[in-house]
Write a protein that binds this DNA or RNA. Structure first.
Lengths: 197, 197
DNA sequence: GTCTATACGCAGATAGAC
DNA sequence: GTCTATCTGCGTATAGAC
C-alpha cells in the first residue's frame, strides 16, 4: 500500500513540523515522537529518509494551499472579498515562510528538487492571486500595471502576520486578531493611505 | 580587550550567517571556517558558546538596523520618500526573517533572552516606521487609523522581496529589480489599487 | 509496520599546550 | 588568541528480529 493510514499520519506530522521550523530544524525523532513510533520506523515509509519526506510533504502542502486559495477566491465576486478570503485561508494554516525556503530549506536539498519546489511554490501562492487581480482589472475594479509584483507583495504582507504572536495581548492590552489586521491591510492596499478629496 | 579586532571579525561572520540561515542551521565550524580559525577558538571570545554569539549578534544587527532605518527616514521629508528610503536600506541588508525568528530561532534559546530579543526586534523594525507614518498623518499627508498594523504590513511586504531570487531573469526575460518592486508596492500602498475618479 | 541494536559522523563544548 | 586533542550527545541511517 503506497499511501497507507500510517504513512498519512507521518506525513501529517511532518508537514506541520517542516512548515513551522524548516528542513534543518526538524529531526526524525521529533516527527517519530509526535507520531508515536520510533524514528527508525520512518524508513519503512520513506526509504530515502528525511529529504524524501520533506519533498513529498512540501508538494502535498502546496497542493492543499492551491485548493484552499482557489476555493476562497471562488466564494467571492469582488477583489476585496476575494483577497480577504485568501488571507483568512492563509492565516488558518501553518506559516509558509518563503524567505526561509529560499535561503535555508532549498540550499539544503538536492538542487534539481529545490528548483522544482521553488517553481511549485511560486505557482501555488502567487499565480492565483495574480489571476484574481487581473480579473478584477478586467472587470474595471482596479487599475495599475504590475500585478505580478503586487500579488507577491500582498502575500508577503499577509504572511508576515504569522510573526505576530497570538493569544497574548499587545502593549495596549488589545488582544491580537490577525484576521482583523489582514482586513486593515487589504483595505489600505485597495484604497490607499493618501487622502482622497 | 573586550572588543578586539579578532572578536569583531567573528561577530561580522556570525551576524551574516545567523541572519541568512537562522540559529539552528549555522554551526560553529561554519563560522570558524569563514573566519579562518578553528571552532574551539571561538570559545575564547564567547565562553558561553553559540547562544551567546547569537544573542550578541542579534543585538548588534538590530542596533545597526535602527541606525540605518532612522538615517533613511531623516533623509526625506515626505512619507513616500521615507518609505522608499527605508525599503532601500532593508534590501541592502541580509534578510531579517521575523517569521523564522518567532517560530524557530527564539524557541531554541533561553526563554528570557528570547523574549527580550523579540521586543528589541519589534522596537527596531516596527517602531520607526510607525512613527514615520504618525508624523505623516500629523502633517496631513495620510489618513487612517491603525498605523501600527500598517507599519508591520509595510515591513512584511518589503521583507518578502528578499525571497525573490536575484541575478536571474523572470519568465518574461525581465531582470529582477527588488528596489523597483519595492517602489511599486509602496506607491500602491499610498495611492491604492482602486480607481479614483 | 514497528521494534531493538548498532554504526558513523557531526555539533557543541572543555582542557591544556604554545 | 589560536591551536590540538578529546569528550559527550545527537541526528541520520542500516540490519535484522518480531
Amino acid at each position: 500500500m503506497l499511501n497507507s493510514e500510517a504513512r498519512q499520519r507521518v506525513l501529517d506530522v511532518a508537514e506541520r513540523l517542516f512548515a513551522e521550523r524548516g528542513f534543518r530544524a526538524v529531526t526524525l525523532k521529533d516527527i517519530a515522537g509526535e507520531v508515536g513510533i520510533r524514528h527508525a520506523s520512518l524508513y519503512h515509509h520513506f526509504p530515502r529518509g528525511k529529504e524524501q519526506m520533506f519533498i513529498e510533504v512540501t508538494e502535498r502542502n502546496m497542493h492543499r494551499h492551491r485548493a484552499g486559495i482557489e476555493s476562497a477566491i471562488a466564494a467571492y465576486g469582488d477583489v476585496r472579498g476575494q483577497l480577504k478570503a485568501v488571507a483568512g485561508w492563509l492565516l488558518s494554516q501553518p506559516p509558509i515562510d518563503l524567505i526561509r525556503m529560499t535561503h535555508s530549506d532549498m540550499p539544503a536539498i538536492d538542487a534539481t528538487e529545490a528548483w522544482r519546489l521553488s517553481e511549485l511554490a511560486a505557482e501555488t501562492m502567487i499565480e492565483p492571486i495574480h489571476t484574481l487581480l487581473q480579473s478584477g482589472q478586467a472587470r474595471g475594479e482596479i487599475e495599475h500595471g504590475d500585478l505580478g509584483v503586487i500579488a507577491g507583495g500582498v502575500l508577503g504582507m499577509i504572511g508576515s502576520l504569522h510573526s505576530v504572536p497570538e493569544d497574548i495581548f499587545t502593549y495596549n492590552n488589545v488582544p491580537v486578531d490577525r484576521a482583523a489586521m489582514a482586513h486593515t491591510l487589504i483595505d489600505v492596499m485597495l484604497d490607499g493611505l493618501i487622502k482622497r478629496e
